[in-house]
Write a protein that binds this DNA or RNA. Structure first.
Lengths: 346, 346
DNA sequence: GTGAAAGCGCTAACAG
DNA sequence: CTGTTAGCGCTTTCAC
């Protein structure tokens, strides 16, 4: 498995090593003749440039590192798609890592990229302390996505959490709900802001904000919902911190023999594909994930090209998607709706 | 952003560069005194070893590259979890890449790892031609997961596709189904084997195998199901090549005003978390994904440590999970079941 | 234990 | 266009 080097290629092609280097970086100042000679030789040998050597000599990696909090949450792959598209267009190599939902694992992932000296790092849904991010940002440009950060040195791309939460509460209140609970995202990225947005919106309506803890996972949604259903006075509507949590809550509710939205209305956040399926048809808040991914790359590139040195804090507008998990509360509504809905069965 | 080097650390600590190197690799032959001196200096400078230089000099990366076909299919994150756990335990760094469902993108991902000279590469759900994989395997040990490969040089970890497909067909036939269609996985990994298994099992029962094409995605499931529903004689049961496809088919069926399993039975493959939710409750075939991930790493390590030079072809046993999307065919069954099921609504 | 010296495979000026 | 010459930052003998 010992690999051929430039030297080998040069010898076989009968040229100098420097020429091979030029060809590998497709420099324009190489004659067609020598180019094909070199390429042929490389091909014959199965030569592949050694990235480590290349990076070491050129002091740049042309690589951006992407850290995703949780691969099981479709939100992250959606962002990754956007990042990938943009990176590809700008000739940057992409390397990914999952944070597997823990700060320790996330720190390790970031550390790996720092050691690699990737040109930039994009962290999606970071659970790291702001200080840790800022420290890392001292050695490499970092863009944080989906985690509001009030740093004046680290760029970020977010949706307006406050606005999103308010859209949800307003919708629910408009339907006539008063007892609304929020299953939050715990220590997850953006959870604090979403929670604060919920609390503020509730107060605006003169309602008592009711928050139970979750963790942005389906299992967390199940547990939190179980808690809510066990109460003497159940909420009539529940706003889950993300779609995954909402799906968990949905299953739990139905397991308990209750129906959504007839007995309880349910709202998620993110608008992942799952929420849009006929079967789930979840009312939720949309974040423009693909765009956020692309924007993260663009923001990073501005830093890399030095075209901007001030902080960029992009805040995109979320939008409410009303589907079938929200309805007016109370038995009256249930009766009224009974005739008009087609029931999937199962 | 210019980073400190070993030289800087050595100077600050008042020792030689070699000593710093030893400390960074926690060699036992360093006095406690100099060790702390070096560590302090490194800390103070924010020093981080340069991986490229390290790799270049040591000729090993202690890194394994993981290529996943499609992040949107929970099957892949599930495998990644297993890989991550095992890699962590063996002190290997993990770097991931998505193939974004296309061979070209997958090839690029693999190429990146080859250039990095990662110690090994695990490809999950490969869409590459067997030849391409074998070629790559000449420069680095590769383990292919979820893609049966009859190479005698590349290790692989799979579930028994033939067996899995047969479990499905047998179950359906036992329920009384005769017109069973298979929405296949197109050119996706393992699709051919799953399809062949379906065809063989159908023939064993003296039934006519009916195959329409899909692509392992939800959208593909919708399209294929639409085609099936448009026929004069609809199948009474559908076996989708994976859960994602099945979920698409499910939504499409219900959009058409039909009910699962009363009008059509549906079976998936993979047993991803989504299939197990109360709401979907899909009959499917389980693959031990976490175990497959761990096994892939173990298989790779055997190669890296030279404890095995022959090919390893692990084939794990799939198992059927009967849930709520399968039932006997026909209106009689429907009537009989009507009274006994609780209907989730929505 | 510690230091000196020789590369790892490549890029990047710089002459020719 | 082509060849020469220095390193990039680290590991790795090998003496001391």
């Amino acid at each position: 498995m010992s690999q051929p080097t430039m030297e080998d290629v040069a010898r076989l092609a009968g040229v100098s090593r420097a020429l091979v280097s030029l060809v590998m970086r497709d420099s324009p100042k190489v004659s067609n003749h020598s180019r094909t000679a070199v390429l042929d030789a490389a091909d014959q040998l199965g030569y592949r440039p050694n990235l480590a050597a290349r990076i070491l000599a050129s002091r740049k990696t042309s690589t951006i590192g992407l850290v995703l909090d949780d691969l099981h949450n479709p939100f992250f792959p959606d962002i990754a798609d956007g990042v990938n598209e943009a990176a590809e267009q700008s000739d940057y190599r992409l390397l990914m890592n999952s944070a597997f939902l823990t700060p320790a694992s996330e720190q390790r992932a970031v550390e790996t990229f720092l050691e690699f000296r990737t040109d930039g790092v994009i962290i999606v849904g970071s659970r790291l302390a702001a200080g840790a991010i800022e420290t890392a940002a001292e050695s490499v440009p970092i863009v944080v996505v989906g985690r509001p950060l009030r740093s004046d040195r680290v760029d970020s791309v977010n949706n307006n959490e406050t606005r999103g939460a308010r859209l949800v509460v307003d919708h629910l209140v408009e339907l006539g709900h008063g007892r609304i609970a929020h299953i939050d995202g715990g220590r997850g990225a953006g959870a604090a802001q979403r929670r604060a947005g919920f609390v503020a919106a509730m107060k605006r309506h003169g309602l008592r904000p009711d928050v139970v803890s979750g963790d942005f996972t389906e299992a967390g949604g199940v547990a939190a919902m179980r808690e809510l259903l066990a109460r003497r006075r159940r909420p009539t509507a529940v706003f889950a911190a993300n779609d995954l949590t909402a799906v968990g809550a949905l299953g739990c509710t139905e397991d308990a023999g209750l129906s959504v939205p007839d007995d309880i209305s349910l709202v998620g956040y993110d608008n992942v594909a799952l929420a849009a399926t006929h079967h789930i048809s979840m009312t939720t808040v949309d974040q423009p994930r693909n765009e956020m991914g692309r924007l993260a790359v663009a923001t990073l590139l501005e830093r890399l090209e030095g075209s901007r040195s001030s902080v960029a804090r992009h805040v995109l507008a979320p939008s409410l998607r009303i589907r079938s998990t929200t309805a007016p509360p109370g038995p009256a509504a249930r009766r009224k709706r009974a005739g008009t809905r087609n029931n999937p069965g199962r």
